[in-house]
Design a protein around this nucleic acid. Structure first.
Lengths: 264, 264
DNA sequence: CGATCTGTTGACTGTTATCAACTCCGGTGG
DNA sequence: CCACCGGAGTTGATAACAGTCAACAGATCG
């Protein structure tokens, strides 16, 4: 895989879902796109529109957000390499707003490019479908997050998910998560009030699970956070890693260097 | 479309999502299946299994349920004609338990049958994908239901969804919904306690929106319920009907015969 | 006809939302 | 350079909503 290839995160992810031959890479490399640098809270799509282009996120975060019901509930968050609206290649109807969280770099790719990709290669189509289904699995998990965990577990789980997805594309290697998120946005994602989100984050800080300074969240006790959240990443459909289960679950409290050691 | 065809509800739904030629119907009619009569709370699939057969619901209800997190949260509900695990034709991993709610009749169809169907006909594949995507759209909507509505609106919305989906397959024509649901199960679907579900239902009854006797829920004021729930059925991806918007939204309170008239 | 599951009610508790005030910070213009 | 401004974060007080516990009633089923 060419490293400098601007879509390599996307291509790598596809490759983990199905075998990609060099022919497939050639097809992908021909991806026509126009690259935009978007400011925070830029709307890429709005409810009611019909999709003509898919949005491949290169840098930053995107989220799907409900434009109704005040507080603008966030129903999913996406990291570089994701194409949040990939499913519009089969159904172009847009149910929610696709919005940047913080500044972001986005590649617009004609919907037809992916359609033709799918038509030309069954194995590529299958990989694309698995990407779409992974998003659906994430949605189902999101239901459980907002409905069956309390505030502390919810925030912890969301951060575990973001960290894991970033690490899967080579980011946040040291559990330092770039965070353009405001506490209000975090609250919208965890479906709670901004005030309560603030108090919840303070509690996570007091528990020495994380720090949050200057637009960076640093998870200082990963296994502690995972345990608190009950985080089981199978639903993300990522290649399995060994850095989720704590090495010694018998230790009830751990903030030492071992928990922070590089894990791969 | 043959009326007696046991899979006609499924075939009809497919036909609304893409043009089905008589060739397609022939292919569908060859569906191999074994039909099971299941008692209430029968587990058809469990987390961690790999799917070999898809489950086409012929009568009754199915739900996806989280086996962890006590209360067994329900994350989706399915009506006759649905194939809740259709997406397993592309990814056989099972994340949740597939469980009957009340007695149900289910046809087991080999996963490979649908795979081959998809391979043989692009238009059939597209229709199957739209079914899968409609489930995904429902999941996203379910997130909003449990996260941004209060208890009363949540229950109202769930009942609107079930009624609409039943009516789309020719059931509940008079807004009488067969309900093998216990209040605990309704609570698990709306992510609230059983006690609170009970009180919420009582309030819906007191408001003359519905009755619930002998395993039948009767919606006595459909438009009132729709209004209370803020129900907008676009996400269900059903052919549009004219029975959602109230004819005269200026009338604040209505329980008269007009609101109950057959609406097709 | 007892056993069990479901529905109902009351009292109490607890989590989270809401409101309001205040601080802190970065940017901007005078 | 500083005053101001707006957005973000923080804090406390209060209220609303929903959960829990416990008891009982009613239905259903062997």
């Amino acid at each position: 895989m060419q490293a400098g290839f601007p879509f390599s995160r996307f291509a790598n992810r596809l490759a983990t879902l199905g075998e990609l031959s060099s022919d497939h890479l050639d097809l992908l490399a021909r991806m026509p796109s126009s690259i935009s640098h978007c400011s925070s809270r830029h709307h890429l799509l709005r409810r009611g529109e019909l999709s003509t282009h898919c949005h491949l996120l290169l840098q930053g975060y995107l989220c799907w957000q409900d434009p109704d019901g005040r507080d603008g509930r966030i129903i999913s968050i996406h990291v570089p390499g994701d194409v949040p609206d990939l499913s519009t290649i089969y159904d172009p109807r847009i149910d929610y707003d696709l919005v940047t969280v913080g500044p972001a770099v986005v590649a617009s790719v004609p919907r037809d490019f992916f359609r033709e990709l799918a038509e030309q290669s069954p194995s590529l189509e299958h990989a694309l479908l698995l990407l779409i289904l992974a998003d659906a699995a994430s949605s189902r998990n999101w239901i459980l997050n907002v409905s069956s965990r309390d505030a502390l577990e919810r925030v912890a789980h969301l951060l575990c998910e973001i960290a894991t997805r970033l690490r899967a594309v080579g980011l946040a290697k040291d559990f330092r998560i770039p965070s353009p998120f405001t506490q209000s946005e975090l609250a919208a994602a965890c479906s709670m009030s901004a005030v309560h989100a603030n108090r919840t984050i303070q509690e996570l800080r007091r528990s020495n699970l994380l720090e949050w300074h200057s637009k960076t969240i640093t998870i200082t006790n990963w296994y502690g956070l995972v345990r608190l959240a009950g985080f089981k990443p199978a639903y993300l459909r990522l290649p399995s890693r060994d850095d989720i289960e704590a090495p010694r679950p018998s230790t009830t409290r751990s903030g030492d260097a071992a928990t922070l050691a590089p894990l791969r």
